[in-house]
Simulated assay, not measured.
Amino acid sequence: MSTKDYLEKDYYKTLGVPKTAKTADIKKAYRDLARKYHPDANANKGNADAGERFKEITEAYNVLSDEKQRKEYDEARSMFGGGFRVPTGTRGGAAGGSTFDLGDLFGGDGLGDVLGGIFRGRGGTAQSRARRGADVETETTLPFGDSIDGATVALRLTGEGPCPVCHGTGAKAGTVPRVCPDCQGTGQQSRNLGGFGMSEPCKTCRGRGLVVDDPCQSCSGSGRAMSSRTIQARIPAGVADGQRIRIPGKGAPGEHGGRNGDLYVRVHVKPHPVFGRNGDNLTVAVPVTISELALGAEIKVPTHRGPAVTVRVPPGTPNGQVFRVPGRGVRKKDGTLGALLATVDITVPQDLNSKARSALEDLRIATSGTDPREELLKRAKQN
């Protein structure tokens, strides 16, 4: 039952007794109503609501007949003026209503933790508190190409899980743990702070809800042990070096029906001999000759795991010019692709034959009237 449902229900009204009713009066009212609405007594009377009414009566009696639960129930309702109702509507709506979260009022996990045992099991039944499994972190290293396209990798995880000998009970073979007598199996104890009760882990069972008299020798009664497992994890396309990927539900197993923790994978990417990365764009340096930049040319540019593309270099292109090739980069979150940024880089020939040397000498003579450093030297003299 939720905190909202519990605070909205008036158990005194359900049993038809005043708030000052003594235990004997509550018991008598319950017996009278139970006889009237018991499912067996209404089996052939066509009273379809009798079963539900009987559940409400029983629920109210279980709380009000227990001195501790009744005290906590009364204190909880008195904090909100009794008959507490959770406001409805939309925040800032036309009617002026607003949503109201009990967790926002007290912080943390909500009012149930603040008011202690009244929000746990009712009716004298012991309930083990569900525990979420711990989060697990690991690392993996991908080739550059797999980081761009995505990949499924095998991850070997070592962590805490149910003990394989006792299967998580913590008890020696042939024995079973018993319900903690102090917390009745809830794993929590309520400490009275005057106006309300504060819930905290039971010191006797350390929050497990169970007490092991004859512990398992393998896990010393904890019910947990270190184990290894291998899982297949999908690393999405476009993951960057150092990025942390969250994989829900692949962490440590939960206890008592609690959900599994999450797995966090830190991805490392190996460098590529040709391509680099700049955000959602791939980068590549393309060697060119001085004549291709001066006279213009069409050059072939490699792409990642695809055919080369042709890029037109206009005459007079400076060294270091970047050409953008759309749709050849990294896949973005919206499904579109970034670009390939190709930077032209002049290569200087190391060995020249006589014909090439003569051609370059002719070029130097033809362009000797122009000093490419003249403007640079002039600007350097400025203050």
Rank of each mutant, 00 (worst) to 15 (best):
M79G: 13
G110K: 05
Q69K: 04
R91A: 03
G107C: 06
R122A: 07
G103C: 14
A48C: 00
R70P: 01
A48G: 02
T125W: 10
S78T: 08
T90S: 06
R85K: 15
G123R: 10
I118K: 01
N47K: 09
E52G: 12
E56Y: 06
T99R: 07
E75S: 02
G97Y: 07
T88A: 14
G124Y: 05
G123A: 06
D113T: 03
Q127D: 11
E59W: 02
G112M: 01
E75L: 03
G108W: 10
G82P: 03
K71P: 00
G83K: 12
E59T: 11
F54G: 02
A48V: 14
G124H: 10
T58V: 13
E72Q: 02
K45E: 14
G108E: 11
G83D: 12
G123L: 08
R53A: 05
V114Q: 14
G82N: 10
T88Q: 11
G81A: 12
R122V: 06
N47M: 04
G51D: 07
S78D: 15
R120G: 14
T88C: 01
E72W: 00
Y73L: 02
N47V: 13
G46A: 07
A48S: 09
P87R: 10
G108F: 08
F100D: 02
G110Q: 08
G124A: 08
R122S: 05
G82R: 07
G51E: 06
S98I: 01
I57E: 09
G81K: 03
A48L: 12
G121H: 07
N62Y: 05
G81F: 02
